[in-house]
């Protein structure tokens, strides 16, 4: 059993949980994810690691309540426990000294971006972070990311905070201003990663995206999470979750992420979630 030690409400539908999982914490690094199961009848869901503390033996996850399991997870309290918590899974982010790095995060994608920003900064990069959300209420981790970034840009779709517009608009402006960018990280909704990757492709700036498709085992066994990368089938769980953003077939990913939408609705109705 894996105890919930801390819980924070980040916004109406986004919650943070710090979970006791010493073995996972010992090995976790930026870019990786975990798979959890709440109870005996629960499904296995992947969540990206938002932070880890090796000394405390904890893993922090931040999740948006979108389906039955995440909604149920959101109702758990400090002191409650999860039945299963396996990881760290997937390949770590390739942290090295690139020069100037843009880290762009959209919505709940800001959470997994945080440790990547921190580690890129520690590696000696000049880190420009761009955080975007639909509105001010959905923005998160501004302070934390600001502390480990050289520059921070905020944008919202409705202009309630920072610049009005998308992450890609801010990035475009940076490029137009003549900023020399060596590599870009983009984590967020599939459409956001697609738009950022299309933009950087024009300027030939290497771009890493972190994908979060539907998974079951998370160990390379089922292939449910397969994505097309450069025309080749890859498993996000073992080959990813980070891939070259210029090679990912985003339309196929969006299609595969809708596979169980009807069932998801049914599951929510059944529990009144």
């Amino acid at each position: 059993m894996y105890e919930i030690l801390e819980k924070k409400v980040m916004s109406e539908t986004v919650k943070l949980m710090k979970i006791k999982a010493p073995l996972v914490a010992k090995k976790a690094v930026a870019g990786q994810f975990i798979i959890l199961r709440i109870d005996e009848k629960g499904e296995r869901i992947p969540l990206t690691i938002a932070d880890y503390d090796r000394k405390e033996g904890t893993i922090t996850v931040i999740f948006m309540e979108v389906g039955k399991t995440t909604k149920q997870l959101g109702t758990l309290k400090v002191g409650d426990s999860l039945l299963n918590f396996a990881g760290p899974l997937g390949q770590p982010s390739e942290i090295e000294k690139y020069g100037t790095v843009v880290c762009s995060g959209g919505g709940v994608g800001i959470a997994p971006l945080f440790p990547i920003v921190r580690e890129l900064k520690q590696a000696g990069n000049y880190v420009i972070s761009i955080l975007g959300a639909r509105n001010e209420k959905l923005l998160m981790l501004e302070k934390e990311i600001d502390e480990v970034s050289d520059e921070l840009h905020i944008c919202t779709d409705d202009g309630s905070k920072g610049q009005k517009g998308f992450v890609s608009d801010v990035l475009q402006k940076l490029i137009d201003d003549g900023k020399k960018i060596d590599i870009v990280w983009a984590i967020g909704p599939v459409i956001m990663m697609k738009v950022v990757a299309n933009l950087t492709k024009k300027y030939d700036i290497k771009t890493i995206v972190n994908l979060n498709p539907i998974m079951v085992d998370g160990t390379g066994m089922c292939g449910g999470c397969r994505v097309l990368v450069g025309g080749e089938t890859k498993f996000a769980c073992v080959d990813g979750p980070e891939f070259d953003g210029h090679l990912v077939d985003y339309d196929n990913l969006m299609l595969r992420n809708r596979r169980f939408l009807c069932q998801e609705e049914e599951a929510c109705e059944c529990t009144g979630a």
Binding site: K41, G42, E43, R44, K68, T69, V216, F260, Q263, E264, E266, A267, C270, T271
Partner: peptide
């Protein structure tokens, strides 16, 4: 995951 018992079990 016992999807044959969905929605009693969560996995579809």
């Amino acid at each position: 995951m016992k999807a044959y018992k969905f929605p009693e079990y969560d996995t579809p």
